[in-house]
Write a protein that binds this DNA or RNA. Structure first.
Lengths: 337, 337
DNA sequence: AACCATACCGCAATCGATTGTTGTTGATAA
DNA sequence: TTATCAACAACAATCGATTGCGGTATGGTT
């Protein structure tokens, strides 16, 4: 059955389509009596405005695109959740475009977003992304873009992240304060800015604290399994009393390795990670961590993006990109003294 | 900067818009020379067809809606991944509409999907959903709908699930074969069809095997924490040598409980779960499970849906709903004998 | 020279809704 | 009684692309 259009209502009520349109949008030129009659008829005929027509007329779509490396991780689902909640309240809808961590697909997705005329774009870059030249088309169409979580530094876009450097620094500091002197770390893909920043904070803290930064104690891994294997190697072959874990994925692989080696935690080894908060509570032992709330990151990003969109619609100009670094709270559990 | 339209190209080349349109779509009425000139110019002017205009003309959108309870779970992210992969290959785009497990939001989302004129809908129902009457609008607009994972039985829609009943039956059988006689189970939200089905298979197996089905040994929980607490209670207060775990969330909560009680697995207790496959490998001990691949479920669902969409476009009729039950493979790890 | 294909291209309607402009009522004031 | 204004509603253009139909050359045929 075809959907009823404004014309159908107009035909049935023997007025012109424009009158229907005005009545439905409460235009003052239409009498109240007619308005209510038309509204009734619209309900009766189950009229719903065609979003396709509106999109064409409006020139933009009430959708924002989320371009991100992958949805199957511990972190992103909660980010998506936060974004979706915020957008839903504003009547926006969410288009998810995963890149599989490949630049090629990131470019494709930018094009898709451009073609769709989305109102804005949230971008978490792939591990292959070095520049943001491929965002040119979005600039030309004046589409707001916000970088989140995995960002390119010093790019002319606003960004929202945690302060990876500072957080990592603080984590090492905390290990030091609880007595660790031989601190190792397991990081994510080496190519990511986020890994790099976290490593820098980690290394700087070691240096500032006068601790030796032994490169053997630092590993860069691609998944839980590699984290597991590297942890086994690290813990059997190196002397170590403190361990830094960059993500939930890494934690998931490392903790069983620790426990299979019968290492006493936190007596012989203190462990601290960065996490969304769920996993650390169900590890044995529970893992102390810097709590980085994905949902909050998502909500903040979405809010910021909508601000930009509204500013654009009101022809306001934004002077310079904003860089937001979210706070994290330290959650102390059983894995540290 | 405004996007270039077909008219812009037409103006610059001093031919009519229709000629441009035909040339770009390789219509035989246009000479090859002109075609290539036009294509060149289109590239030069960075022409991209307006999806809004196409959507209006086409009467439908190359988007499918995924309506599901939540994205923050162990299972759904990989389902989404599978769906997205499949859709992307076909030039479709994915609209994600979470319901927070509430019927009200499910209804809202159905309306959104209807308003958007999506080509099809994948639906995993909320825990509050009993009937599918709210899909009426989609029926009227002849929009294909496929139920997946969390479904309503005997509804006039095709569905894709695992054979929850059979799988659970087999799991208990396996526990029995490895010597268990006192089998308990921890299930998800009691209101869900999926919990119900899995419990039925579980209970039927117990009955068929002549095992006692002690209601104290069966728990229905809402999250990992409740699973944890119930496992503690169960394992301290009841005699038990076999344990069934319905989901990853439950496994995440239960395993630390088991290990904190120093129960020997699998000597004193055999454990088997249903899982996507990642988590069981990083539990201590590793957990035997029926492997239920979310990605595969997603891919299958998306493929099936696209079949329906294509059939609809060719005005073919589908006789009756298909019910697909996916296979699961048993993966034997350390938690069973 | 008259005729017909064929190749090539433009006109205008269409998809559904919005909106500036114009036109028609009726009522009120001068 | 006539001018004036308000209230109301229709016409037509617009957003960007598609497509049936019709029209004009060009070439070839007899």
């Amino acid at each position: 059955m075809k959907k009823t259009t404004i014309k159908d209502i107009a035909a049935k009520m023997e007025v012109s389509p424009s009158t229907i349109s005005r009545a439905l949008s409460d235009h003052p030129d239409i009498s109240d009596r007619l308005k209510s009659e038309i509204n009734e008829m619209a309900k009766l005929m189950k009229y719903r405005p065609s979003s396709a027509a509106l999109n064409l007329k409006r020139g933009t779509v009430k959708t924002i695109a989320l371009i991100l490396p992958e949805i199957t991780s511990f972190f992103y689902p909660s980010v998506i959740h936060g974004i979706e909640q915020t957008l839903h309240l504003q009547g926006y809808t969410l288009l998810i475009l995963p890149t599989d961590d490949r630049l090629e697909r990131e470019i494709e997705n930018i094009i898709i977003a451009y073609d769709h005329n989305v109102a804005g774009v949230l971008l978490s870059v792939s591990k292959e992304t070095i520049t943001l030249d491929h965002l040119e088309s979005l600039n030309e169409s004046n589409t707001p873009v916000i970088l989140m979580d995995k960002v390119i530094e010093d790019a002319p876009y606003s960004s929202i992240t945690i302060d990876d450097y500072k957080v990592s620094y603080q984590m090492v500091q905390h290990l030091y304060k609880s007595g660790c002197t031989h601190v190792g770390g397991i990081f994510g893909k080496a190519s990511l800015t986020i890994s790099h920043l976290r490593y820098k904070g980690f290394a700087k803290a070691l240096a500032d604290l006068g601790l030796h930064n032994d490169l053997d104690l630092v590993r860069f891994v691609n998944n839980s399994q590699e984290a597991h294997d590297n942890a086994l190697d690290l813990l059997t072959n190196c002397r170590l009393d403190g361990l830094y874990l960059m993500t939930d994925e890494i934690m998931l692989g490392v903790m069983p390795a620790v426990s299979s080696l019968n290492i006493k935690v936190p007596e012989a080894l203190s462990i601290i990670g960065i996490s969304d908060g769920l996993l650390p509570h169900f590890m044995m032992p529970k893992v102390s961590h810097m709590r980085h709330d994905g949902r909050e990151l998502g909500m903040l990003s979405a809010q910021k993006l909508i601000q930009y969109i509204n500013a654009r619609n009101n022809h306001l100009q934004w002077k310079s990109p904003e860089v937001v670094m979210m706070n994290t709270n330290i959650v102390l559990l059983d894995s540290t003294r």
